[in-house]
Amino acid sequence: MSIEETENEIVEEFEMFDDWMQKYEHLINLGKSLPMISEEKKTEDRIIKGCQSRVWLNSELKDGKVVFTADSDAIITKGMVALMIRVLSEHTPDEIIDAKLGFVEKIGLTQHLSPTRSNGLVSMIKQMKLDALAYKSKR
């Protein structure tokens, strides 16, 4: 599935919810179901510091595709992190660099992308793209 197709799938998924409460419950469940990364991988150099919640991000290149794993100490942030991984993981560096990620706005969670929130998500997306860029330049 392409990045855009996954984004559309998520948008459809969120359209089923009538109110914010269900939307957040879904996000919390997504956060809970994201496999935790092991404590030894939560190193200082992989931490993305936000003012509020912390995100740890790891990536590796497998068969030309970037595989992301991540974690957060806040469950709602972790839900957003899970969505980002679902969209961006296992794609080529070029696809990741070019991703527009318009789905966040479509599912009505733009406040998580506002810089004032400083919750690490904006920095996480930036780091995912930087990782992709690094793999691209290595090839």
């Binding site: 957040y24 919390i28 509020q52 806040a74 469950i75 942030t77």
Partner: peptide, 13 residues
Amino acid sequence: GIHAFDLGTILDQ
């Protein structure tokens, strides 16, 4: 067991 950010987000809603 609950992060302050999560509580703040739900309270904001």
